[in-house]
Amino acid sequence: MESLLANFLAKYNYWAYIGLVMIGMYAMIAKRNLVKKIIGMNIVQTAVILFYVSIAAKKGKTIPIIAHGHEDTGHHAVQALDYISPLPHVLMLTAIVVSVATLGVALALAIKVYRQYGTLEEDEIAMRIEEQ
């Protein structure tokens, strides 16, 4: 029982990931304001990035820059085990740029909706559409 609890607590990054995805999903589903929904979408995106960076992390290892790489005295064997894996980091750099692009497009659409209907609340937009 104690080892099970220790096993759960040792991977607290993944629990934080689950919690953040739930917060973002709640905002996207339950909130009526369009800007709140967009903020929830961005929270889900950063939570997914947290998940990938947590996969790459290793306890007690250093960042992926080769030590003594500038010296030409002898050849050092590079042990991949000694470094944090840089592959998920590179993938997530692209994801951050894509997330800011989706945020810009979504906010532009929200501004268009506000100019058309004069409100950002979803139920009020539905009422305006029914009136027309």
């Binding site: 961005n42 950063t46 990035i49 960076v53 947590s54 790459a56 992390a57 290793k58 290892k61 250093t62 960042i63 944090i84 980091h89 590179v90 997530m92 750099l93 951050i96 740029v97 997330s99 800011v100 945020l103």
Partner: peptide, 19 residues
Amino acid sequence: IMGAVDVAFTEASVGAGVS
């Protein structure tokens, strides 16, 4: 803290600033 320094500064400039 997790050692992803490139992701960290991209998030600080793009995620926190531009967003």
